[in-house]
């Protein structure tokens, strides 16, 4: 599943003022790549992430995801794309309170129209993959930060997407939990999944095979590491 961005711009209206969050980005990400997007705050890396994650549409330019033009999809089509093709991991975990770990993980399958029995079975499987099968019936507030992020990763994986997008996934974690989480991402990458990661920590970017530096809405540098 390839990602092809060409001349993508994003303009916001902020109090009558035009803000050019992205000023023309062209970026190709091949299937199976582990890419880190780095940049100072205000550089436009979050906007780029939102567009890559189909949460937002570019103002101009083209975004081909898996051979499909995303820039012209309507809201519902974007929602379906997010549901089937992309798994999200957020800095603040974004688990739903008052729902068990298992229900949280199963949630994307609700919107995919998977039957309840199958949903729970698959959620259980994925939780086992991140080593949390014993925490199935706990609520998010009964888990540690690292555990919560692993639940969030399980949730991102449950519809078997080929792309995992993570926005500062270790930002709220201590070093040890952060390393655990990053190891999971590495493993997922080695299974052939595309990983796109936004971070401002160089240590975290170390896990990636490619680092894209963004500044003032433009790509400043694009580095591949030789393994």
């Amino acid at each position: 599943m390839s990602i092809l961005l060409s001349e993508v711009t994003k303009v916001y209206q902020l109090g009558g003022e035009q803000v050019n969050a992205l000023a023309g980005i062209t970026l190709n990400i091949s299937p199976g790549e582990f890419t880190a997007i780095m940049g100072p705050s205000g550089s436009g890396k979050s906007t780029l992430m939102n567009i890559l994650g189909c949460l937002d549409r570019p103002t101009k330019g083209s975004y081909m995801l898996d051979g499909q033009e995303v820039a012209t999809l309507n809201d519902d089509q974007l929602a379906i794309t997010r549901n089937k093709k992309i798994g999200f991991v957020f800095q603040s975990f974004n688990l739903l309170p008052r729902m068990s770990t298992l229900q949280n993980v199963a949630l994307p399958m609700v919107y995919a129209g998977v039957e309840k029995k199958e949903r729970l079975a698959r959620a259980e499987q994925v939780l086992a993959m991140v080593g949390l099968e014993s925490r199935m019936n706990h609520q998010p507030n009964e888990l540690s930060g690292g555990q919560r992020q692993r639940v969030a990763i399980a949730r991102a994986l449950v519809n078997d997407p080929t792309i995992i997008m993570a926005d500062e996934p270790t930002g709220n974690l201590d070093t040890k939990s952060g390393d655990e989480v990053m190891n999971i991402f590495s493993e997922l990458n080695s299974q052939g999944r595309t990983i796109i990661l936004v971070t401002h920590e160089p240590d975290i970017a170390e896990y990636a095979g490619r680092v894209v530096y963004v500044r003032d809405g433009l790509i400043e540098r694009d580095e591949w590491k030789v393994r």
Partner: peptide, 16 residues
Amino acid sequence: TREIGIRKALGARYQN
């Protein structure tokens, strides 16, 4: 609001 945002990010459509 935040819950709605999460549900939408995970693929909830307008009618959901």
